[in-house]
């Protein structure tokens, strides 16, 4: 018997599909649904209940993760609107953005060589600011203008930033070890 999970992740949490999201409501609804479906609530139940509970809890976790983070939320919104973000295939980026990426990559390499943890923390803060401005653009493109092509472009840029962030964390881990 197929599971009736509702139409999409937003429906599951009783939220309207939009990029700008009441994250407190998302969190609260997530917790309340998990209180109903989590395997810990079915440890003493029949096999069928236990299996279902695991499927539900898995699905709810997946949905929550997708909506919680701005990048995956934007990606998901595009997906339910039938738009491919082309993160693997489309490498066309504004020249300005690419230049900045290269500068940041160099800054990471320099900071690593100089053992400069503060510089890395400053870089991470800059990255967060950049990510916030991309989020503002995504709100505009997804919620207001419905300009999915522009949104897909912003998603690809955000993916770049996310990778840079991971690189900074990796270097921080290495320097502290």
């Amino acid at each position: 018997m197929p599971l009736d999970f509702g139409k999409n992740y937003f429906d599951l949490f009783g939220l309207a599909p939009s990029f700008q999201l009441d994250t407190l409501a998302l969190e609260q609804h997530y917790r309340e649904i998990q209180l109903q479906v989590h395997p810990d609530k079915f440890a003493h139940a029949a096999d069928a209940d236990r299996r279902l509970s695991m499927q539900w809890a898995t699905y709810v976790n997946e949905a929550y993760q997708a909506l919680k983070h701005p990048l995956s939320r934007a990606r998901y919104l595009l997906q339910i609107n039938g738009v491919d973000t082309e993160e693997e295939s489309n490498t066309a980026m504004p020249a300005e953005f690419l230049m900045q990426q290269m500068e940041w990559r160099e800054a990471i390499v320099e900071a690593e060589a100089a053992n400069d943890i503060d510089a890395l923390e400053r870089l991470a803060a800059k990255l967060r600011a950049e990510s916030r401005s991309l989020q503002a653009r995504l709100t505009e493109a997804l919620d207001v203008g419905k300009d999915y092509t522009a949104a897909a472009g912003s998603v690809r840029m955000m993916k770049f930033l996310e990778k840079l962030g991971e690189e900074i964390n990796r270097v921080l881990d290495a320097l502290e070890t």
Partner: peptide, 17 residues
């Protein structure tokens, strides 16, 4: 009882929302 379990779970989630 499998289908019954599925309906109950679905009803519970719906109740929360």
């Amino acid at each position: 009882t499998e289908f019954f379990a599925a309906r109950r779970m679905d009803a519970n989630v719906r109740k929360v929302l």
